[in-house]
Simulated assay, not measured.
Amino acid sequence: MNRSKKVIFISHCILNQNTVVKPLARAKGAYTSIIKKILDSGIGIHQLPCPEYLFLGLDRKPMSKEEYDSYEYRKICREIVLMNIQIIKEYINKEYKIVGIVGIHCSPTCSISGQTGILMEELLKLLDDEKIDIRTFEILTNYIEDGEKQDILSKFDDFLR
């Protein structure tokens, strides 16, 4: 079977809502509608590690970007970013298409627009430093896997094209 040579980088919790702070989970396990769209498009998935989980574990309380923003937390985020930049460069060097990076709006870690989350801030800065241009998409805070989601899914379809 031929490879599509297409890969998308996604925030950890899109595939694993079990690592989300307890009151903020919006799906039983994964955002299956989002994942199905990626898989149906023949795109490989690269899941970014969750620095919040690595830093404080499953029983952490909801925290703001300001509360997470410490030397120790940024160090974890930078380590994740450095590893993933090497992965991105390898894909690019082997002529793969990086379809994009998918974040979570208003996340202290993975928000891309507005107040950028710490992981995405570090990732986008290093991509810019490396002169690597990758499109981004965010899952909005009102997205719930079992709720009405046609608008976001049609926008995500457009993003995947």
Score class of each variant (00 low, 15 high):
Leu82Thr: 03
Gln115Gly: 11
Ile85His: 03
Ile87Met: 08
Gly114Lys: 12
Leu140Gly: 11
Met83Trp: 00
Asn93Cys: 09
Glu145Trp: 05
Glu95Asn: 15
Ile101His: 02
Asp129Arg: 08
Asp129Asn: 11
Glu122Ala: 15
Ile139Arg: 10
Gly103Ile: 07
Gly117Pro: 04
Tyr143Thr: 10
Thr141Arg: 06
Ile101Gly: 05
Ile88Asn: 02
Glu130Leu: 00
Glu121Ile: 01
Val81Glu: 08
Asp146Met: 06
Gly103Gln: 05
Leu127Lys: 13
Phe137Cys: 04
Ile80His: 08
Arg135Gly: 04
Lys97Thr: 13
Glu145Phe: 03
Glu130Arg: 10
Ile104Lys: 07
Asp133Leu: 04
Gly117Leu: 08
Ile134Asn: 09
Asp146Tyr: 02
Glu122Ile: 06
Asp133Trp: 00
Tyr91Gly: 09
Ile92Asp: 02
Ile118His: 00
Thr109Cys: 13
Gln86Asn: 14
His105Val: 02
Ile98Gln: 10
Ile144Lys: 07
Ile101Trp: 01
Leu123Asp: 10
Ile144Phe: 12
Ser107Val: 08
Leu124Val: 04
Phe137Arg: 03
Pro108Asp: 06
Ile85Ala: 02
Lys94Asn: 15
Ile144Tyr: 10
Ile118Ser: 01
Lys89Gly: 10
Met120His: 05
Gly114His: 12
Leu126Val: 13
Leu126Gln: 15
Lys131Phe: 00
Glu90Gly: 04
Ile104His: 07
Ile104Arg: 05
Asn84Thr: 08
Thr136Asp: 01
Leu82Tyr: 08
Val102Cys: 05
Cys106Met: 12
Gly103His: 04
Ile87Phe: 05
Ile134Leu: 06
Asp129Ile: 07
Ile104Met: 14
Glu145Val: 09
Glu145Thr: 10
Glu122Cys: 15
Glu122Phe: 02
Pro108Ser: 05
Ile144Asn: 04
Cys110Ser: 11
Tyr96Phe: 15
Lys89Val: 08
Leu127Trp: 12
Leu140Lys: 15
Tyr91Ile: 03
Ile92Thr: 07
Gln115Leu: 10
Ile134Pro: 06
Glu145Lys: 10
Thr136Tyr: 00
Cys110Tyr: 09
Ile139Lys: 06
Pro108Leu: 02
Glu138His: 08
Leu140Val: 08
Gly103Asp: 06
Lys131Ser: 12
Ile132Ala: 07
Ile139Glu: 02
Arg135Ser: 12
Leu123Asn: 11
Ile112Val: 15
Thr109Gly: 07
Leu140Pro: 14
Tyr91Asn: 11
Asn93Glu: 14
Val81Ala: 07
Cys110Asp: 07
Ile88Lys: 06
Ile112His: 01
Glu122Arg: 01
Gln86Thr: 06
Arg135Tyr: 03
Asn84Asp: 14
Asn84Ala: 06
Gly100Pro: 04
Glu122Asp: 15
Ile98Val: 15
Asn142Arg: 07
Thr109Pro: 04
Ile118Gln: 03
Tyr143Phe: 14
Gly117Asn: 05
Lys125Glu: 15
Ile92Val: 11
